[in-house]
Simulated assay, not measured.
Amino acid sequence: MLSERSTATVRATLPAVGAAIGDIADLFYRKLFAAHPELLRDLFNRGNQASGDQRRALAGSIAAFASQLVERPDTRPDVMLNRIANKHASLGVTPAQYEVVHTHLFAAIADVLGDAVTPEVAAAWDEVYWLMAGGLIAAEARLYAQRGVVAGDVWRTWEVVGRVEETPDVATFRLRPADGSPAPAFRPGQYVSVQLELADGSRQIRQYSLSSSPGSPLRSITVKHVRADGTPDGEVSQRLHTHVRPGDRLRLSAPYGDLVLDHLDAPLLLASAGIGCTPMLSMLEHLAERGHRGPVSVVHGDRSPSDHALRADHARLTAELEDAAAHFWYERPEPGHPAERTGRVDLAAVTVLPGTHAYLCGPLPFMRDVRTRLLAEGVRPADVHYEVFGPDLWLAAG
């Protein structure tokens, strides 16, 4: 909880800090990478840095955290902290790195706001930072302990034992631990980080959902080939697609992520678009293996059937469930596809049962549309669970 004195100061300065937070985040990253270029080379996603998404996510999360401390002082934004902590744990972030961030973030605040940063203002925002950092450090420590790993040492070497071309732009890589030890357990919907050495010597990291069920003897990641076109965006997926074959080895983190299948006694809705189907396939396979008997609505949107990665599995696993129905929308359907499911996903055509828990994964506009419809149907906001590929601009803005 923020101290009474700092609460008054943060409330008074929040509009000014909020208005400048984008400039502060931009300057912070420039200062950070000038002092520690290895962080941009081997930890931060260069594509998100180039697009500005990471800066916007940082700015939004700090502003959202400070706003909640002021407006709802008796609660803590645990949903936001847990989501960030899972991502940090998959990267191996250490407590010492929060000191590094503090140094350069507060230098950026002082540079951007100038004389407005009085000692009292600096102390209040310092308290905000360490409340947020302390919450994250504690959450990450719990996540590391659960996996039996040490902060900063989350990586194991895995062998690629199979590769399946799902579509012209999507491939599934089947993996097992290179040392022959058992694969770590995970919950349906979680992801791993893949650390890949690129041609320039950098070791870039990307997160990919596990698309197999926890009961599978192998682990699978299904990766869409994002065309890099000379930019950092897509550089890891491009190398995976063009260079990685059975017999090769990859460095994977322990599994993390807070989009996990739960509430199995409630009606379920699994909604995805594009490559967002990957965590849903893990959930569906898990439900099928358990002989799940409750109602499940499966919703997916894609450009065309040929672009729908894992389409056959998506349909087959749904059909294996006792009380489930699949609703696939295509912008360019094949002949015979229902006209009412042509174009973008429209949940008006899907019955949303009372008490539904919904799991969403896909582009942000898709998830916004689905969430809006679900709330209109009476689904509680807390019962809508989601995963975002890349910086979580949605959560930061909320």
Rank of each mutant, 00 (worst) to 15 (best):
T118G: 04
I137C: 09
G22C: 06
N86V: 07
A288M: 12
S212A: 10
W155V: 11
D248K: 05
I62V: 15
W130C: 09
D169A: 10
I275C: 00
D23V: 01
H308D: 05
G291L: 13
T318N: 12
R341N: 02
D233G: 05
M1V: 13
E322Y: 00
E4K: 10
G47V: 05
E197R: 15
R245M: 04
P217L: 08
G201L: 05
L136K: 09
H263F: 01
K31N: 14
G180S: 13
Q54N: 05
S220K: 00
R303Q: 12
E38N: 13
S61D: 01
D229P: 00
T7C: 09
R373S: 11
T356G: 00
R341A: 04
V194R: 07
D262L: 04
V154D: 08
A266F: 00
A12C: 04
R316Q: 14
S181L: 08
K224I: 01
A25G: 07
R46K: 13
R72F: 07
M132C: 11
A133D: 14
L375C: 01
V70L: 06
A108V: 02
T242M: 03
Y359R: 08
I21F: 10
S6N: 12
L268A: 03
A96T: 14
E320P: 00
T278L: 00
L353I: 02
R174H: 06
L395H: 06
Q190I: 08
R341P: 01
V379K: 05
L136G: 09
L393A: 11
A8R: 15
D126R: 00
S304L: 14
L250H: 05
E166S: 03
A66Y: 11
I137W: 12
N82S: 14
E340H: 08
L259G: 04
S297R: 14
L143C: 12
H243A: 15
D307G: 01
A312E: 15
L143G: 08
A57P: 03
D265H: 04
L58C: 03
W329P: 04
Y29N: 02
I137M: 14
A138C: 13
V70K: 05
T75H: 12
L14K: 06
I21S: 14
S253I: 09
A122P: 02
P168I: 06
A171N: 07
S181G: 15
S216E: 13
